[in-house]
């Protein structure tokens, strides 16, 4: 099979043999796939600067199966340059996709959302709202979307002022009906449904819920990037505001 100039982003790359790279790409019409880029890490390779995560690319490849051979790469428009303090979030999302997306399963909708997420990470003042929106969409596209509009037992609409417990395989239950599950306010559920995540208190609740839902999909295996976040927080309790970047 020969594919020409397919819109794609790289999720990961690692050296392979002497001068080649193994790429993990997220493509618009073919989903996630593995590619061998022969000679791409040799000193003279033109592709080296191009084949970076977060850069919009047009990739061409041949071969069927899980590992195809890259035959060409071009940049597709202006590169998204993530500011240094957002790169970790970008790597986190890439790890999520590598771990959760099955290979060769087309996800054109999610691809568009990923592109928007990168743009948001590059410019938005807060990184958490776009990250949560992306994670919610990822769960939906994997077939494990969260129920956010009605109580699971009674089917009654979610009330902003009520308290709920989200039981992962059932949905939100009124707090007095369930002891287990992730506690969350009605406001939090509705904010996540509408994607309007501005209130810091709501963000905290939503983060716990999504983290629990993702943990179930990851089947208990920890995310490496999250470990990095934790170490980072321990060593630097006060992250400087992004504005200080310009001083460097």
């Amino acid at each position: 099979m020969r594919v020409l100039l397919q819109p794609a982003f790289l999720l990961h790359r690692r050296p392979y043999r002497d001068s080649s790279l193994l790429l993990e790409a997220f493509t618009q019409e073919h989903g996630r796939l593995g590619l061998v880029a022969r000679g791409a890490s040799s000193p003279r390779s033109r592709l080296k600067g191009l084949l970076q995560p977060f850069a919009p690319l047009l990739l061409s490849w041949t071969g069927a199966g899980e590992l195809a051979t890259l035959t060409g790469a071009e940049d597709a428009g202006r590169p998204v340059s993530l500011p240094p303090h957002r790169v970790l979030s970008g790597l986190y999302v890439n790890e999520l996709l590598v771990r959760l997306l099955p290979r060769l399963d087309p996800q054109p909708g999610l691809f568009a959302v990923y592109r928007e997420l990168l743009a948001a990470l590059a410019t938005a003042p807060g990184e958490e709202p776009p990250l949560r929106r992306f994670e919610k969409r990822l769960l939906e596209d994997l077939g494990y979307g969260l129920t956010l509009d009605r109580e699971s037992v009674s089917g009654a609409p979610i009330v902003a002022e009520e308290r709920y417990c989200y039981v992962l395989d059932r949905g939100p239950l009124a707090a007095d009906r369930a002891a287990a599950g992730v506690p969350i306010s009605g406001r939090g559920l509705l904010a996540l449904r509408d994607g309007t995540l501005t209130d810091p208190a709501v963000l905290g609740e939503v983060k716990r819920l999504i983290r629990a839902a993702l943990a179930e999909q990851l089947r208990g295996r920890a995310l490496k990037t999250r470990e990095l976040y934790r170490v980072k927080r321990e060593t630097s309790p006060t992250l400087p505001p992004p504005a200080r970047e310009s001083e460097r």
Partner: peptide, 18 residues
Amino acid sequence: PTVEGEATAYYIAELARE
């Protein structure tokens, strides 16, 4: 000057800044 190199540089810059 790769994505990983930048992430590493930022991480170490944080250690220095503290």
